[in-house]
């Protein structure tokens, strides 16, 4: 199946996001013969730099330079893409907060199939594109097929595809006039940066991370005691912050902090990709979870199937004795 394949390039401060080369590799694994086109939207010198950078890996770059696109507002980008993309296009987006915002509505407006949060491709048969996804917070995987005869919008999970190495010498095509006069019923105001917390977990080498499996707020003292005995710092998954049991600065994950510890003790954390997305630098991960099927055991080096409330006091006591 011949197809027009497009990849939306996320960028900030004149640099393409890491996702750019992952999308390229996803596009190539999908349609080895296709020459994917990078879509670069924004404004000013930063955009030019990104277009040049991306042209070192994509054969073609469409650049849209408009003041209105200075901040990536999906409500502006969607109608623009609907206008410029050829019928039947395959559009690949990162499964990021921008991709999630843009993708579903884009597929509707293009009349295309929507395949979200794809972690792998399983080939194309006729008009059926087969992909691999995860469901139930990563506990099981699924093969999903989409009828792409009218095109497709695919969002790709970060880290699922190894970045392609820059190879092509691409041309940058200025498409800015196409993006003139855009307006939307949602207007960007500003970005409020996340507040810094009282501890900087990004600098810690030994982290004790607690998740929803701790059950009750009162049980957090078991985690505090263990961390104290180890001389480690406590961090957490998102539900602990949502419940206001710990401050936001201690949250590890895509919508929290990115940490690079040497040792990471994951206690009652299922291992959602948004959580693991905040763990970098291949730490030694020890996971404790009562569910032997928890996806965290795929990421961890060492696992224990246990109830935290039973294990933690014993572990703390033995560590205290061992020193």
């Amino acid at each position: 199946m011949a197809a027009n394949v497009f990849a939306l390039i996320a960028h900030a401060a004149g640099k393409a996001d890491d996702s750019a080369l992952e999308l390229l590799s996803a596009a190539k694994s999908l349609f080895p013969e296709a020459a994917p086109t990078a879509l670069v939207l924004g404004s000013g010198p930063g955009l030019k730099a990104v277009a040049q950078e991306v042209a070192a890996s994509f054969p073609e770059v469409w650049s849209f330079d408009q003041e209105t696109l200075a901040y990536p507002n999906a409500e502006l980008i969607r109608p623009l893409l609907v206008k410029v993309l050829p019928a039947g296009s395959i559009v690949i987006l990162p499964h990021s907060t921008l991709g999630i915002d843009l993708g579903p509505g884009l597929s509707v407006k293009l009349g295309a199939a929507y395949l979200p949060d794809v972690v792998g491709f399983d080939g194309v048969e006729g008009t059926q594109l087969k992909v691999v996804r995860q469901e139930f917070a990563g506990q099981v995987s699924a093969h999903v097929q989409g009828d792409v005869s009218k095109g497709a919008v695919v969002t790709v999970r970060s880290g699922a595809f190894a970045p392609a190495s820059p190879s092509a010498v691409g041309t940058v095509i200025d498409k800015s006039p196409e993006a003139a006069g855009l307006s939307a019923r949602r207007r960007f105001v500003e970005v409020v940066q996340a507040e810094a917390g009282d501890v900087d977990i990004t600098r810690e080498e030994v982290l004790v991370a607690v998740g929803r499996g701790i059950g009750e707020q009162d049980n957090l003292s078991l985690v505090d005691d263990l961390a104290e005995a180890m001389g480690a710092t406590v961090c957490c998954s998102r539900p602990i912050v949502d419940a206001k049991w710990l401050e936001k600065g201690r949250q590890v994950g895509t919508s929290g902090q990115t940490v690079k510890p040497k040792i990471y003790l994951a206690l009652g954390i299922s291992g959602a990709f948004q959580h693991l997305g905040g763990l970098k630098g291949s730490p030694f991960i020890v996971a404790v979870n009562k569910n032997p099927k928890a996806p965290i055991f795929q990421a961890a080096q060492v696992g224990v199937v246990a109830d935290l409330v039973e294990l933690l006091p014993e572990l703390t006591e033995q560590i205290q004795k061992a020193r």
């Binding site: 030994v206 040497k262 030694f284 080096q301 224990v304």
Partner: peptide, 29 residues
């Protein structure tokens, strides 16, 4: 891939294995 090495035994035994492991990996500051 291989997945995690699963520790087994009683709570006491598992805790003891974890202590040894954390020591060896530099997890006790």
């Amino acid at each position: 891939g291989a997945g995690a090495d699963m520790l087994t035994g009683s709570t006491k035994e598992v805790a003891a294995q974890l202590v040894d492991l954390l020591k060896a990996k530099g997890g006790l500051n």
